[in-house]
Design a binder for these strands. Sequence first.
DNA 1: AAAGTCAAGCTGCCGT
DNA 2: ACGGCAGCTTGACTTT
Length: 202
Amino acid sequence: MKPNPTSLEPSLTLALSGDHSCGGNSSFSNVRGVKREREQVAISDESNTSCGEEDHDDVNGKKKLRLTKAQSGMLEEAFKLHTTLSPQIQKQQLARELKLRPRQVEVWFQNRRARTKLKQTEVDCEYLKKCCKILTDENQKLRQQVQQLKQVHKVHMPQPPTATVTVCPSCEQIGDTTKHPFTNMGSKPYFFNPFTSSSAAC
DNA sequence: AAAGTCAAGCTGCCGT
DNA sequence: ACGGCAGCTTGACTTT
């Protein structure tokens, strides 16, 4: 785990969400901080709903924020309709309805998208595992079939008097002992490998 | 106590 | 320059 350089500053990491909207913590040093700080001011100007809200159980300077079931439910409903908060109005409106800060709504959507993506990745992974197993089984069956066919071929087809006549399995041409590369395969058994099917071609 | 969950912070990238 | 987002991380809180 890579250490976060900014985590060395307690004023940043221990900054409470409630503190921001109440104008308590203004120690942001980067552009983003300025941006957010502006947002907080705007909200506290707009309404003082954030301060002293029951969601922000600000005990002993430790943050504790858990969205209520109602809030989560409404956010889920909004997420079902749209996974992104395209218009600024939507964010503001949701925030007003849920008595949250717009930043909280924004963060909730970001985290929600991350969760969805993670879940989808897990689903995809499982699907690929199943595909892999099916293909492995099928490959095994095909190999067995090839072996069986070879056996049958050995029994019913007597060996030619001259062992120099060979047929390329790809182009079905009779091998030219001087030019055709297939003749270089010698007496090695021929296997069809779907992943390297070109290997035995002319 | 360890593992899991979740809100929120920071950084970097991209589009406008 | 600014806003939005993804990715990663942190820390409080909950569940096992």
